[in-house]
Amino acid sequence: MDYETKLVFQVGLLLLPIFVVALRVLAILPSVGLGSSNKDLKSISDITSGTGSSIMVLLGSGGHTGEMMRILSNVDLSSVRRTWVVSSGDSSSLVRAKEFEDKYQQNGKTCKSSEYLTLYRARKVGESLLSSLNSTVRSFVDTVNQLRKLPELPSVLLLNGPGTSVPLAYILFGMKFFGLCNTRIIYIESLARVNKLSLSGLLLLPISDRFIVQWEQLYHKYKRAEYYGILI
């Protein structure tokens, strides 16, 4: 084999992994439209349909948690396993989640078990760029470790926009890439966002299977956004 032919194989071997990665991303990317098709689901309460499923709900902080709990108050989650994710040091969100669980216990219905995860916080409000980079990396590592401890990865991830949702969603997307899970990512943009998406929203739009906004302006601006009125 002459030098030039060897070169062909070397370049080929170099490009092959990138090619495979690109093809896989293409196959699972929701915006390409090959990813799980779920346009038939019309209301928020439909996300829990199907037995044996589990939902992971991220409770960010103050306002985000409040919104999420109000959205969930209309939904019956008793038939699915629930995993509540809170940021470290956010005891009030944890309390809200436990209150939510207590209601199910009081009703005495047979309901699936629930779990709590506490994640290292990605970016504190007003933190400088450099130190937020550092804490983002730490939050990534921490999140992977926590997810590995779970008995099963969720079939639905419900987010509504705190900074922690970006690493969590991308980690689960990465796991989907390797075929480790088939989590559908559902993102609900905060009610506070009227004309512009939040940074988290912008970053998560391409990998979200469903992207729900609560204002018509946003619905018209972003093609994949869905709008069902104000949800809270």
Partner: peptide
């Protein structure tokens, strides 16, 4: 390879 990567990149760019 470039065509494939560029297609993904433009899909992202349009999405956001």
């Amino acid at each position: 390879l470039l065509g494939l990567v560029y297609f993904i990149a433009t899909t992202f760019a349009r999405d956001i």
